[in-house]
């Protein structure tokens, strides 16, 4: 061993050592050698509990989302049915409310053409104004089917008034009133819809004929007589 030769280090060896003693150098080197800290063994149990509780919550979340979706669908279905009910096509015969009847009865004069023109079309969303500025919204209506009978020519305007049922029994045709004819109009209204809401028998001179042709007495709620106005 003593015979082994000695080797001389480099001249800058000390400087190299001092460089390694530099704070920043040591800092960078030792950051890679920071000790490892070990957590408690109980942590995994806490993590498992947390995962289990989250797993239990999740199905309820999914269920609540599904339930709200179904509820939304049911609500949409209900609303669409409501809309469909509101938009039902009108019946072929006009639905006349008692207020309408009152208004028409109070008209002193009207002609047939006027009465037809006063019936609103489906496309018209007509609002009728009553006394006291009360506004009633009418249901969509359609023109009634007009009988194939030849139209009555009325030179003068007609008077609308209630039918005196008492006088009907003793009615006799006066030759002077040949031009006078009786018309029976059956109108029903109310919450329950009838197949026939307005029925007319017109063009007879004897009111007894009107009675005999009317077989819906139970549903009949009003009668009016149209009488040609005498000159």
């Amino acid at each position: 061993m003593k015979s082994l030769p000695e080797h001389k280090p480099r001249e800058n060896s000390w400087e190299k050592i001092m460089e390694k003693k530099d704070f920043d150098f040591q800092l960078n080197e030792n950051l890679k050698k920071l000790p490892v800290h070990v957590p408690s063994d109980l942590v995994w149990e806490r993590i498992e509990k947390e995962l289990e509780s989250q797993r239990r919550i999740f199905p309820w979340k999914a269920f609540s989302i599904a339930a709200s979706f179904v509820a939304f669908l049911l609500l949409a279905l209900y609303l669409s049915k409501q809309d469909a009910r509101m938009e039902d096509p009108p019946k072929s015969i006009s639905q006349v409310t008692s207020e309408n009847l009152l208004l028409e009865n109070t008209n002193d004069q009207f002609t047939k053409s006027d009465s037809l023109a006063s019936i609103p079309l489906d496309s018209q969303n007509l609002e009728l104004q009553k006394k006291g500025n009360r506004i009633m919204k009418r249901m969509p209506e359609s023109l009634p089917v007009i009988s194939s009978r030849p139209s009555i020519s009325m030179n003068n305007q007609a008077i609308v008034k209630g039918l005196d049922l008492g006088s009907r029994e003793n009615h006799s045709i006066n030759p002077a009133d040949r031009e006078e004819t009786y018309h029976s109009v059956a109108i029903s209204w109310g919450l329950n819809r009838k197949k026939i809401l307005m029925k007319t028998n017109f063009g007879v001179q004897d009111p007894a004929v009107l009675i005999s042709t009317t077989n819906e007495k139970s549903e009949l709620q009003a009668r009016i007589k149209l009488k040609r106005k005498k000159q």
């Binding site: 920071l34 490892v36 070990v38 957590p39 408690s40 993590i47 989250q54």
Partner: peptide, 28 residues
């Protein structure tokens, strides 16, 4: 990986309890 995660949390916070809470939340 728990040592890496815990050492980082513990070194930032210098609090064992807080570091354990962070460790748990991190793995969840």
């Amino acid at each position: 990986t728990k040592r890496i995660v815990y050492s980082l949390a513990y070194r930032i916070l210098n609090d064992e309890d807080l570091a354990h809470d962070v460790l748990q939340d991190t793995y969840v």
